Each structure stands twice: as structure tokens, then as C-alpha cells.
Simulated assay, not measured.
Amino acid sequence: MHCQTNPYLQLIQRLAAENAVVIFSKSTCCMCHAIKKLFSGMGVNATVYELDEDPRGKEMEKALVRLLGVPVPAVFVGGKLVGAMEKVMTSHINGTLVPLLKEAGAIWL
């Protein structure tokens, strides 16, 4: 990730590193809602940044599009990018999400 070149990527990386699970979301996005439900259903207390409610949100969303190819939801676990909806669901289904969450201290199962 080229954080030095884009201050919004730097901001995203800093925010993502502050908590075990960070979701960049939009309050009106149904896929974002589904991702938040997935994590809360697993007992994860994710930190959620609603980009449509943040004055820096539009620029952060543009940076996420450059990073992921899609705007939201963007999920970080342990400061590392997991990805958007498809990657998160794939890692949940194939069993790699729970170990990531345990390693980050987000769940203790």
C-alpha cells in the first residue's frame, strides 16, 4: 500500500490499526449492513466508520476504491486489509476468518 502518496490512505491505515476489527461502511449500504451483522453475530465488537457520515468520507471512499476496486464495505482485521464483501465471505466460508479474528484479539473462542 502506498500510504505516503495519499493522505487518505494513510488515515485509513491509521484508523484500521487502532482496533482489532475495523469496517469502513456506508449507513445506507445493504452489503455493509450484512457484514456488520456477520461480525456482531460472531461476537465481534467491530469499530465502524460510516463514510457517508464523516466529513472526510468521500475522499476516504475514493482511496478505498483505488485500494480494493470497490468502495465499501472494507474490512480490516488486526490492521490488515481482509477486503470487501466477497473476500470476507470467502474467508468466513473457508474457515480462515476465525483464526484471523482470534489472532487480532477480536474473539476468544
Rank of each mutant, 00 (worst) to 15 (best):
M1V: 14
H2M: 07
H2W: 08
H2A: 14
H2C: 06
H2T: 12
C3I: 10
Q4D: 14
N6T: 03
N6Y: 03
N6A: 07
P7R: 09
Y8C: 03
Y8H: 09
L9V: 05
L9M: 10
L11M: 12
I12E: 01
Q13K: 10
R14A: 14
L15D: 04
A16G: 15
A16Y: 03
A16T: 08
A17C: 06
A17I: 02
A17P: 02
E18Y: 04
E18Q: 15
N19L: 01
A20K: 05
A20H: 11
A20P: 12
V22A: 02
V22E: 01
I23M: 02
I23R: 00
I23S: 00
F24E: 00
K26P: 02
S27K: 14
S27F: 06
T28L: 05
C29L: 06
C29E: 04
C30N: 11
M31S: 11
M31E: 09
M31K: 09
C32R: 04
C32P: 01
H33C: 05
A34Y: 11
A34D: 10
I35Q: 11
K36C: 10
K37H: 08
F39S: 02
S40T: 15
G41Y: 08
M42S: 02
M42G: 04
M42H: 05
N45F: 03
N45M: 07
N45D: 15
T47S: 10
T47Q: 14
V48Q: 06
V48T: 15
Y49S: 03
D52C: 13
D52M: 13
E53T: 12
D54E: 15
P55T: 13
R56H: 14
R56M: 09
R56L: 12
G57W: 08
G57N: 09
K58G: 12
K58S: 14
E59P: 01
E59L: 09
M60G: 03
E61L: 13
K62E: 11
A63R: 00
R66A: 14
R66D: 15
L67V: 02
L68A: 04
L68T: 09
G69C: 03
V70R: 11
V70Q: 05
V70H: 04
V72N: 01
V75A: 01
V75W: 00
G78H: 07
G78T: 05
G78S: 10
G78F: 05
G79N: 10
G79W: 13
K80F: 04
L81N: 13
V82E: 01
V82D: 00
V82Q: 03
V82C: 04
V82K: 02
G83S: 12
M85T: 13
M85A: 08
E86Y: 05
K87S: 07
V88C: 06
V88D: 00
M89E: 04
M89R: 07
T90F: 02
T90I: 02
T90M: 03
S91H: 07
H92M: 05
H92E: 09
I93V: 15
I93F: 06
G95M: 10
L97G: 04
V98G: 00
V98T: 15
P99M: 09
P99R: 10
L100E: 13
L100M: 15
L100Y: 05
L101E: 09
K102H: 10
E103N: 14
E103M: 08
A104Y: 07
G105V: 13
G105F: 06
A106S: 11
A106D: 04
W108L: 12
L109K: 09
L109P: 15
L109H: 10
